[in-house]
Structure formats: C-alpha cells, structure tokens
Design a protein around this nucleic acid. Structure first.
Length: 476
RNA sequence: GUCCCCAUCGUCUAGUCGGCCCAGGACAACGGCCUUUCACGCCGUCAACAGCGGUUCGAAUCCGCUUGGGGACGCCA
C-alpha cells in the first residue's frame, strides 16, 4: 500500500448478472467490502449488464440477495451499465476527437484471418491496425478502436502481485464500441470506474491481462489510475479450475446447506489472505485486520472440509438467540414442530457444540422437538435396550415422578443417585435412557435433554418405549 | 503458439528488509486422553521449502535457468 490510501478509499464489486453469485465472486466482493470498511471508505456495486443476450434480471436479484445474506452492505444505489450507454458514447466522442480512437470497417471475419496469420507466425494474435489511418467515419458494421501505442512498456504495481510489466507491442487496437453501439467490457469498466471515483480495483486474477489494456484507456481519457489488486483464483481440490463438480457452489447453495454467513466469509477470506496463524475471525476482527496487505499471489484450492470446520466453530460460538432466526427454516425442513422460544433456545445450546451446520443442528434437534408418537424405535435399537435396560427405565420412571423440580442439576443428581444405589454402570443406564428419549444410542447430555423435554414428555417416551419393547418381544 | 502470473506438509498458510527455521499454526489422516454414548475439547504422530545452478561467512527467503501449475490472447464479462 502507499500514500494513495490516504485518499478516500472507494472500492466496487462489479458482477455481471449471468449467473448466481459464486464462491470466487463472493470472495472478491468480501475483499472489496473489507477494504472499504477498514479504511472507512465506500463500497459500491455495479451491475455489468451490457451483454444483453446473457444478462438476466433474476440473476441480478439473486446476486443482491446473496450479498445481503453475506451482510456485505453497499453504499449508494447499484449502478446498472445498461442505462449508461449515452455516457460511454460521450467518452467515445472524446477519444475520437482527441485522436485516441478511430473507426474501423473490418469485418469480424477479416480480423479473425489476421489473428490466425499472427498465430501461425508465432506471434500473439492481434488486429493489425489497418484502419487506423484511414480516417473513416461511422457506418453500419463499423466499430471504434483504441489507437494504442505501438511500443513502450505498461507497468503498474499490483496489491497482490507486486510490480507487473507488459510490452505495448503485445496489445492491439482493441474495440471500444461494438457495431451495435454497445461498449466493450474493458471500455465500460474504465469509464465507470472513473465516473464512480473508484480508488482500488480488486478483482480476480483472470483480469491481469486486461489491466494493461485498461490502463491505456485511462491514459487516453486523461484520468488517474486506481490501485489495482488481482487476487488469485480459487481452484478445486484437484487444483483444476473451480467448477460445480468440486462441491464449490453458488453462495445461495451454501445458504441452503445451513452455513453461517460469518463462517463462509471467514473461510473465503483466508483463501488468499492471512493474518499470522489466526484462523477464526469475527466480522469485526476482519474489518480491523484487513488492510489490503498480505494478499497471496498464488492460487488456492477450495477445501469443503475446512469450510465445514470453520462453520462448526462459528456455530459453536454463536449465541442461541442469534442462531434461532437462521435456524427456523431448517427446523421446518427437518419436519420439527415449532415450540416456544425458550425451549428452542435451550435445545440449541444443548446441540450447538455437536453440529457442523444449521441443517445438521435442526436434524439433531428434531428428535427432541417432535411428539413422542413420532419417535420410531426399530428392532435393532430395542434389542440393544434389552430386558435389563427396560428395568432401568421402569425404576427411573418412578424416581422421576418424585422429583421436586425438573432442572438439569436435579436430573443429573437423580441419575447419579440411581446408578449409585443400584451399583450399575452409568453407561448402561445412559444408553437405555438415550434409546427411550431420543431413539438413538448417541446424543447430548441426558439431564439436559430431559429438562428440555419436561416431565410429562419424558414419562411419555419411557412408557412408549416400554410398550413397544414388550410388543416386540411378545412376537418372538 | 505468444504473453502474464504462481511455486513451503495432501489442503489453507506463517516465514517483516537472508542467519532466531534440521521450517511454525490450522484442516484432513492416524494414535491417545477426557467422558454418560456420539460429538466437542485436550495431548501427540505423520507430513513440505519443485529441481539445478549461482550471489553470500550464511538462502525457504536474493538472481538465473529448468520443470510443473494457472490465467489471458473476442465486436464475453
């Protein structure tokens, strides 16, 4: 970083609405957002919808909704390039007048031939600039091209990659305005970044090669350069370009899988950025720590396992009341009936440390929340329970009836006392109770679970288990 | 093909201007402890400076080459 950060930091995220917000785009957005929030600047949004064929309104909405879910709030109204064609045209006029651009009458086929020829000659495929000095005017099928310098070096310092240098001879006279009047990507980006006063352009690695071209446009337009930062792409676990089969999905899918936005943000930021050995960051910690330094220059592979681990950490540390609203849809999906708030909060804190995702949490909580008659005990589980287990259930049922209250401490003592006086292993009693109460040999702390179920429900489940057990054994 | 970028454990990474690194943390794996089962947690094990040349008293750190990977070469973004 340099003295340019002393100016107001303005970053922007500029997705094109041709798909949902995916992992790579989300990380770029997070970096931009963090940068702006860290320096107290602005984070702007621009929808690059100049490709009329592929842009879809529903994707714009999906992207915005994923941004909101990630809690990446933007400043000002989003800018839509679709509505700014007149501005691009005005800038085209300027460049035409100043001699930085010219009309070209070559057909796409002709240009393609030139490229093939260059490629065959072992050069970089490029347009040869044959219309540059023809002083053509507008006409059907004609495009406007930049009169790029033929020689020299184009250099800039990148936030992630350091000093970068390109030879001007590598670049050809790129199209700025298409035959249909639409601006090309490189042109609209520069015009808009200038208009929006963007100070720091953070984007994917795949744009490095566009940067020297864009710098040429900045120069032609007589504008100051922003600071560029090209963050390396995210690769699949097999180190190939990220795609759906890697389990790298759109942000919206992670939302559906029950990830916490904080966790996704945390994980994604750590892909290509680090702060010593620190792994788990709260949003506030990220804002405080992220200053655009320590960006990695090399690509990172996406690891779903670690994502899950990060999520589990955030889930475990979150307050139940913060989790509850996010959990509601998952409880419904899991078929768990709604219960009162206190009960739900209690259940959350009971299961919280053992769940990796909200979906996971909801499914685990379900066994506690559903009505007793929905609990299913299969033959295998009942066999595990055995006559001895049933004996425990009967005795404990009696003990429980006499309890003065039904709080975890009392229940815990009750269980302990029972084990003590019977001289049996807690393990055996615990398993029997767990089978009766949860229909499973695994689960959370028994006293905690019982307290949440309440006395009636515990009784209910004990009776029901015993009934099913005797029914099953009578059949044999 | 041409240009650009990258290169530390399987993965994410630490490693400020070369010595404190026979390389640290985390995920995963494996082993153990804890325990009321499963988790959680705790402890430990396995595991890397791509290769080759330089520069230097000394290099994971600087330079070059090689190899490997990625990206870009559109009237897509």
């Amino acid at each position: 970083m340099n003295d340019q950060t002393s100016k107001k930091v303005i970053t922007r995220f500029a997705p094109s609405p041709t798909g949902h917000l995916h992992i790579g785009g989300a990380r770029t957005a997070i970096f931009c957002w963090l940068m702006a929030r860290h320096f107290g600047g602005k984070f702007l949004l621009r929808i690059e919808d100049t490709d009329i064929e592929r842009s879809r309104q529903e994707y714009t909405e999906s992207i915005l909704s994923s941004m909101r879910w990630l809690k990446l709030d933007w400043d000002d109204e989003p800018v839509f390039q679709r509505g700014r064609f007149y501005i691009y045209d005005k800038n085209i006029e300027r460049l035409l007048e100043s001699g930085h651009a010219y009309w070209c009458a070559c057909s796409p086929e002709e240009v393609e031939t030139m490229r093939e020829r260059a490629r065959a000659a072992g050069e970089k495929p490029r347009y040869d600039g044959r219309c540059r000095n023809l002083h053509l005017g507008p006409g059907p099928g004609r495009v406007v091209r930049l009169a790029a310098p033929m020689a020299g070096r184009i250099e800039f310092t990148d936030m992630a990659k350091g000093r970068l240098s390109f030879d001007a001879s590598e670049l050809d006279d790129m199209v700025l305005r298409r035959a249909d009047g639409a601006p090309t990507y490189n042109f609209s980006v520069v015009v808009d970044d200038i208009a929006m006063n963007v100070s720091h352009v953070l984007r994917g690695d795949d744009h490095v090669n566009n940067t020297p071209r864009q710098i040429l446009i900045y120069r032609a337009l007589g504008a100051d350069l922003p600071v560029f930062g090209h963050v390396p792409m995210i690769l699949g676990p097999d180190r190939q370009k990220l795609s759906k089969r890697h389990g790298a999905k759109a942000v919206i899918e992670y939302e559906k899988d029950g990830l916490l936005p904080e966790a996704l943000v945390n994980y994604l930021v750590r892909l290509g950025w680090s702060q010593g050995d620190k792994e788990i960051f709260s949003r506030e910690e990220l804002v405080a720590a992220f200053n655009g330094k320590n960006l990695s220059g090399s690509p990172a592979a996406f690891d779903p396992e670690k994502l899950l681990w990060v999520n589990a950490r955030h889930l475990r540390e979150a307050k139940p009341e913060d989790i509850l609203p996010l959990l509601l849809p998952f409880l419904e999906e899991a078929g768990a009936p709604m219960r009162d708030r206190t009960l739900l909060l209690g259940a959350i804190s009971l299961f919280q440390p053992r769940a990796r995702t909200l979906k996971d949490l909801a499914e685990q909580m379900r066994t506690l929340l559903i009505a007793a008659d929905e609990l299913h005990y299969d033959g295998e589980i009942l066999a595990l329970l055995g006559t001895e287990g049933c004996g425990h259930l009967v005795c404990l049922g009696g003990k429980i009836d006499e309890l003065p209250d039904f709080c975890p401490e009392t229940l815990h003592q009750c269980l302990r006392a029972y084990v003590e006086e019977r001289g049996v292993k807690f393990k055996a009693v615990g398993q029997a109770m767990r089978i009766a109460l949860l229909g499973s040999v695994n689960g959370p702390d028994l006293a905690g679970a019982m307290a949440i179920l309440g006395k009636d429900e515990v009784r209910n489940r004990l009776d029901r288990t015993l009934a099913q057990f005797s029914a099953a054994t009578n059949h044999i």
